[in-house]
Amino acid sequence: MFRKTGLVGSSLIDLDIKGDDRGFFARVFCDDEFRRADLPLNIAQINTTWSARAGTLRGMHYQLEPAAEIKVVRCIRGSIWDCILDLRPNSKTFGKWFGEVLSAQNRRMMYVPKGCAHGLMTLTDDVEIIYLMGAAYSPSHERGVRWNDPYFAIAWPNEPIELSVKDAAWPSFDPVFHGIETFRNLATEELGSDG
């Protein structure tokens, strides 16, 4: 089941679980279902992340065009607060963010469209996340928004306990450095009348 988040082109995805006394079956990805929901994804790679401690913050990451990426994020062990930040200048939700708890128990997934930064904070110890990625990693196109940039004022659930040097060093929001002009047409081209 696909549910809009309030950010243009992003969705929460709840699995359609078929279960009995043995357990359950659910399809995590079906190209036809994603396309019918207007959420295209050509999977270029599948990544996983493991974090040892609650309070680990990763983000806010994205890639510039032409390597901009779609992500579908699922927490398969533990619990996270997952966050999307819209950086598409033509989007009616530019500069807005959305956060949601994803956990191994709720099995919920988050669809992150191109032109949005993504980050997360672990809510428990021993957390593993899997990402379906619409583009391969490209170091020369990598960018990040500082997790506590006052321009966006993301309301994280807690102060981070663990944060990489790289994530702590992202500069304050600057449209030129952050390359948002490369996203100018994403909201209109990919999202039709929503952008």
Rank of each mutant, 00 (worst) to 15 (best):
A44V: 00
G99C: 11
E65Y: 02
D174V: 08
W156F: 09
P113H: 08
N90H: 12
I84N: 06
G99L: 13
N47Q: 05
E142D: 15
T49G: 14
K92G: 12
Q105A: 14
D21K: 13
E100P: 03
N158A: 13
E100D: 09
S140L: 10
N90P: 04
L39G: 00
P139Y: 03
T93I: 09
Y137Q: 07
L123D: 12
A187R: 14
L186A: 05
H61Y: 08
V72C: 07
D149S: 12
L120R: 05
S103G: 10
D194G: 02
E142H: 13
F183Q: 05
E128W: 02
W97Y: 13
G78I: 02
V73G: 10
P66G: 01
V127W: 01
D167S: 08
Y111I: 08
L12Y: 02
S51Y: 05
D20P: 08
H61V: 02
V28D: 02
I46L: 05
R107E: 12
G144E: 11
S103F: 11
A135R: 14
Y151H: 14
L186R: 05
D38V: 01
I17L: 10
F24T: 03
A135I: 00
H118V: 07
N90D: 11
A135W: 00
A104Q: 15
A67K: 15
D174S: 09
V72Y: 00
N185W: 06
N148D: 15
D32G: 01
I17C: 03
A52R: 15
E190C: 03
R88V: 00
S51K: 06
C75R: 00
V72I: 15
Y111G: 04
Y131C: 00
S140A: 12
E189S: 12
P171W: 11
M121Q: 15
I17N: 02
E189C: 02
A135Q: 13
K71W: 04
V127K: 02
T122L: 04
V28G: 01
D31V: 05
M121P: 04
G9Y: 04
L120W: 14
D126H: 12
C75K: 01
R77V: 07
N148I: 04
E162L: 13
P40C: 03
R53N: 11
S103D: 11
V28R: 05
T48F: 09
P113T: 02
V176R: 10
G95K: 12
R143H: 03
F2L: 06
I154L: 11
L123E: 14
A117C: 09
V112I: 15
S103V: 09
D82Y: 06
G23Y: 14
F183G: 02
T122P: 07
I80M: 07
Y137H: 14
M109G: 07
K71F: 04
T124S: 15
S91M: 09
M110F: 14
A187T: 11
G23K: 10
L123K: 11
E181V: 03
F173I: 05
A136P: 02
D125K: 10
R36A: 15
G19M: 02
T122C: 13
I70R: 07
T182Q: 08
M1W: 04
E181A: 15
G192C: 07
N47P: 04
